[in-house]
Design a protein around this nucleic acid. Structure first.
Lengths: 334, 334
DNA sequence: TTGAAAGCGTTACCAG
DNA sequence: CTGGTAACGCTTTCAA
């Protein structure tokens, strides 16, 4: 549509009978301008409905106040909470968020990255699409990774202590007396899949329990995978006594299977889940879960990126781990 | 940080030994340039790691390929699904999303609106913060409202047929034989609160049932409000036989109250909810809900805004209503 | 206290 | 085919 051009500084200047410089001064309060001139300029701005063109300002000032957010899928309920924290922090400092989704496709990630860089975002907040991270090297725009982070030590990272979270969950099950404990996790090549698996293994090991491949599944973080993995477990001649599901989608799928088939939790099989969701207290039985502060993580991510932008020299990469907490309800059999 | 300046067209031109015009031509494939020159330019681009400055391009071309998204709170699970649809549609056309939250604060909405306009977004997608909409008049940037839309007929709107949704839900309860049917809804001044209430009233009216103020609550869309309203209902000397909760937060609160206090659904009180959530099938009993296609709504919103941007002349405002559907599960007593 | 003009990084017209 | 240059809308230096 955009039929008529938007008013510019020049238009305002003309109408107010002053130079563009003067108008710029009053808008930015950079110089002291006489009351009467100011008045005239404000009137002109008002009557033209003038809003400064931020593109031109950015071009001139070399600052866009834009942060690029690169995530796999905004419908994953984990993200909105975190984004909310990020947004609140950034908004305080007049930074805005440019959103882009990758659908966990590294190709799309690469494309979007280029787009964001082209738009001259001042910082990047990213949860990795896949295992490839080469396209993030050699970028001199500050980056904070979160959730799905690269292994490399050279980047800022904010994450839950996934290992500890899984350890906590598994150990709780062990101390409860269960021996045949299974796990459903995400892909090996993602820290979030791998570290949770490692935490599980370590807990089993520390308590002298065997790690059996028939009780471990790690492939995708999806509802279907959770459903299918649970189905496989329950059709084993010796099904697990307890299962640890490593993210909300997996929990959803696994739990759905159990409900559909009429299994009783925790009697037939106990459950500990990752991610404390809205509904964890509403299902029957209420879910014992690993919880961590999503909003606060977002705020911290926002702080970290703002700080990295401010810095004149590159400071050592920070790896911030948030402590998970076990929320004991009833699905574990307690 | 941003220590070293990013390479510019000029840098590329210099390195390749050509003019900036020529470089621009090859980048945009606007003119036919000889193979060898092209080659040299690509090499220069490669070695400098040059990415065109989109700000300058936008300024020159008068197109930002940016859409502003103005919503109350991204953590409301309704939004992410819709946004996903929007994002996918827009991404196909190389448009990106600038996200901003209002926290349902009209003041913040006004501010953010100005910011988005300053950034010269080509279109606006908004779910209203409050009842005030004056700041949206006199804006010549195309707007599509969704979810919380203004009453005015002058704007494009995409919404669920809220009236019909509530009518459907209420009528189902009525046909089931319940007489004392209550409703918990959101504020009167929001279409989403009001229309759902109206649908309820009409259904009651059409079936000769009285509308009693003790059975109607409309104030806020929050978990707490849902909890409290349900508590009030159940402490009535004659509690309702069935309740219709008008959004996911209200459902969450109301259901939580019932669970906590040990009420049996649908025996003690039947329930029909608005919004089909992930967990609606997992709770006990599975929830009978009103469902509508969130992702598809997002796609439609994206289409509509793109179309409005393309149009040379302003076409009449469209009011698109998505049909809700009743998903009968067990909380209604069927 | 005000203004002229250069420049931010592109694009595109017009010449050659 | 290639290039000089004005212009997009703003900020800021320098001068008046």
């Amino acid at each position: 549509m955009q039929v008529k051009r938007k008013p510019t500084l020049k238009d305002v200047a003309q109408l107010a009978g002053v130079s563009t410089a003067t108008v710029s001064y009053v808008i930015n309060e950079k110089k002291i301008i006489s009351k009467e001139v100011k008045e005239r300029i404000f009137e002109a701005i008002e009557s033209l409905n003038y809003i400064p063109n931020n593109l031109a300002q950015s071009l001139k000032n070399r600052e866009t106040r834009l942060i690029g957010l690169l995530i796999s899928d905004i419908a994953n309920p984990f993200f909105p909470q975190v984004i909310r924290g990020i947004e609140h922090k950034l908004a305080m400092h007049n930074y805005n968020i440019l959103l882009s989704e990758t659908n966990s496709d590294p190709g799309k990630e690469k494309e979007n990255l280029k787009m964001l860089l082209g738009r001259r975002v001042e910082g990047l907040i990213v949860s990795l699409a896949g295992r490839e991270v080469n396209h993030f090297s050699n970028i001199d725009t500050p980056i904070v990774f979160f959730n799905r982070v690269p292994d490399s030590e050279e980047f800022h990272k904010v994450q839950v202590d996934n290992f500890k979270a899984a350890y906590l969950a598994t150990e709780h099950l062990i101390l409860h007396g269960y021996k045949r404990i299974a796990i459903i996790s995400g892909p090996e090549y993602l820290n979030v899949g791998r570290d949770r698996m490692l935490g599980y293994r370590q807990a089993m090991l520390d308590h002298g329990l065997p790690i059996l491949s028939k009780y471990t599944r790690m492939d995708r973080f999806s509802v279907e995978y959770g459903y299918n993995a649970m189905e496989e477990f329950m059709s084993l001649s010796e099904p697990p006594e307890a299962v640890f599901t490593c993210n909300n989608a997996l929990t959803l799928g696994a739990f759905r299977f159990l409900k559909e088939k009429g299994y009783l939790v925790p009697k037939d099989v106990a459950l500990v889940a990752y991610d404390d969701t809205d509904w964890a207290t509403l299902v029957d039985p209420p879910l014992t879960v690993v919880r961590y502060p999503m909003y606060e993580m977002g705020v911290r991510i926002g702080e970290l990126i703002l700080q990295s932008i401010q810095e004149k020299v590159r400071t050592p990469a920070q790896n911030i781990r948030f402590d998970p907490e076990l929320v004991i309800r009833r699905s574990c059999g307690c």
